[in-house]
Design a protein around this nucleic acid. Structure first.
Lengths: 341, 341
DNA sequence: TAGGCGCGTGGTAACGTCAACATTCCTGAG
DNA sequence: CTCAGGAATGTTGACGTTACCACGCGCCTA
């Protein structure tokens, strides 16, 4: 023990790189490097006393496992990638933050890959990054449809149709949309117009489907939907087409924001003249004018599942998360009201 | 050549790991591994013909350098970290996206570190991640003030005071605030109230300073500022204190959003009764009601500088970016107007 | 009491790369 | 014609880790 201590001290604790290696810990604790490795990796095959001694040495020396060395040896980088096209949509931002936290919980680093340059480029970046797997956010998922991901790269796509060759996870867009539509109908509106998201988006398609089905179920007319690009400006543009509606379900909050402004400019008040419901429940929605009734998405749960599914796949465990669709909820504020008769 | 080709083919192109290594490329091109390394690293000491042959072999085999192996050997991970507390403030989201793009341009991967658990925790995560350096976003920067970063970890802090031991980069908060204030004064308002950001934030302090100095320069009264936390809800709460103001400069757009709603609830119209100017120019601001006059921040430029400064430091180059403060600009929309006399 | 088995542990090699040094070949000056 | 010197390329080993196998010990079973 004393001898081991001395020999560790002789090494001055550091190599030229200033790094504490496993070998130093081993020398200090008087065991082999292999045993240190077992302690670090929580192998059960270590005597408790030995384990304690090694842990003490690690603490004293300030040992940190070297990710790169481990990655080289094991072929696993303990890193997952997050692919997205933009953070301009608030939903994506929230999803990103939630994903960062969920990944950290599972002991994985999260690296960012922007998909602005198309799929091929993204896959290129992903393989360069040597991630163990990746989570692809909704907007980018449309791009993924055709391109075959490099074999061996685990993918979980958020807000993509299930069962298309990669794992997917999504919010209950259709259910949320249906409940928004039913809510509006229950307020006495004869029908509900829809400001949809971009045609390429699965989430947008699902929300549109939920709206359509709710309308059909109620036996009311299905007006042609307007279409935007998720941005507030596109919601504003849709104001013209929607100015005579009495109820509008918007595919996201930001478009609702623009729509409400457009309506106001035309002298149509919300909710007195037009009822509006959004989707996402972004943090600002409660402070829109009027406070926006909307569908809440649980991004934390969504991110958690995406990471779970991905990490389970990476680590070879059977995915325990079952139906991979996370519930949404109507939150009633002040932008929709009963029609006056 | 033919022989080299055959021997490469004999290896079936892959090891058990399915990875193409330098050695395979070397065998295929009939050169040593070292020469391949030189080609990959763009060393000038390679015969053009040889270089071409190696490049052809790399392309044919689909060679990708192994980041982990390189990191192990060189001690550099070619990765930078991004530390942030939250993405709920839209400014942070935009900064993050811009940073991801800037880092990619420089050939660095960007990994996310949330700082929700305090500084020590963040530094811990950073060293575990083995990043070559890190960019710290404003909210987190206050936390950094006291804690000493681990030696050898390069840091660039965004929106922190300059010259405090680490590099920093920031927008011209004070200048932007002053120009917002002067604009409001020029509209005929007797004075300008201020809805400030959290006291712990450098950006908030700078904006407050700019506002104060502009008021002093004009020789008008400096009312006590209200204070929020960047969120729209806190802007709404500030409505009570600010309801009798004729002009308000808000430290960010989201608080302005909440404030406008609070004002509306009190029967004070914007801009007819109260003029409001924000800060950040978030994408939604043009669709607030009324469209918000605000100070535009150039997040792309800010991110670009932060990455430049950091990467230059990592690579040992003298930082060429000089004053590290990026200009802001007043964008006039409809939330502020001349006072009626 | 001999054989076997599981436990805790150690030794060795290899993951893919690059720095340092070594080697070969060619050019041109003396 | 010889030899210094530089350019192009090759050889060796190490970065820190873990997989695989081997070893010795105590205990159980036949």
């Amino acid at each position: 023990m004393t001898e081991a201590d001395r020999s560790a001290a002789d090494m001055r604790g550091r190599t030229h790189s200033g790094r504490v290696s496993m070998a130093m810990v081993a020398a200090s604790a008087g065991v082999s490097g292999q045993t240190v490795s077992r302690v670090v990796n929580e192998s059960p095959r270590v005597d408790p006393a030995t384990r304690a001694r090694v842990e003490a040495a690690m603490a004293e020396l300030g040992y940190r496992p070297h990710r790169a060395a481990r990655a080289l040896r094991t072929g696993r980088s303990q890193t997952i990638g997050l692919v997205f096209t933009t953070l301009a949509t608030v939903g994506n931002s929230r999803m990103l933050q939630a994903t960062a936290e969920a990944a950290a919980e599972r002991g994985y680093a999260l690296t960012l890959v922007t998909a602005s340059d198309g799929v091929a480029e993204s896959f290129e970046k992903l393989s360069l990054q040597e991630v163990d797997g990746a989570i692809v956010l909704n907007e980018a998922s449309a791009l993924m449809a055709d391109a075959q991901p490099p074999s061996g790269l685990r993918l979980v796509v958020v807000d993509a149709p299930t069962g298309v060759g990669f794992a997917s996870v999504h919010s209950d867009h259709a259910g949320g949309a249906a409940s928004a539509t039913r809510y509006l109908l229950s307020l006495g509106h004869k029908t509900v117009h829809h400001l949809a998201g971009p045609a390429s988006s699965f989430a947008a398609a699902e929300r549109e489907r939920g709206w359509r089905e709710a309308l059909n179920a109620a036996g009311v007319d299905v007006p042609a939907p307007a279409r935007g690009d998720w941005g507030a400006a596109s919601g504003f543009s849709a104001g013209r087409a929607l100015s005579s509606a009495s109820a509008v379900f918007c595919a996201n909050d930001q478009m609702a924001l623009g729509l409400v402004r457009a309506l106001a400019e035309r002298g149509r008040r919300v909710p007195e003249d037009v009822s509006v419901v959004g989707f996402d429940d972004v943090p600002d929605a409660a402070n829109y004018r009027p406070p926006l009734t909307t569908i809440h998405q649980d991004f934390a749960a969504l991110a958690h599942r995406a990471v779970s599914v991905l990490v389970d796949a990476i680590e070879g465990a059977a995915s325990t998360e079952r139906p991979e669709v996370v519930p949404t909820a109507l939150v009633i504020r002040a932008s929709a009201t009963a029609v006056l008769r």
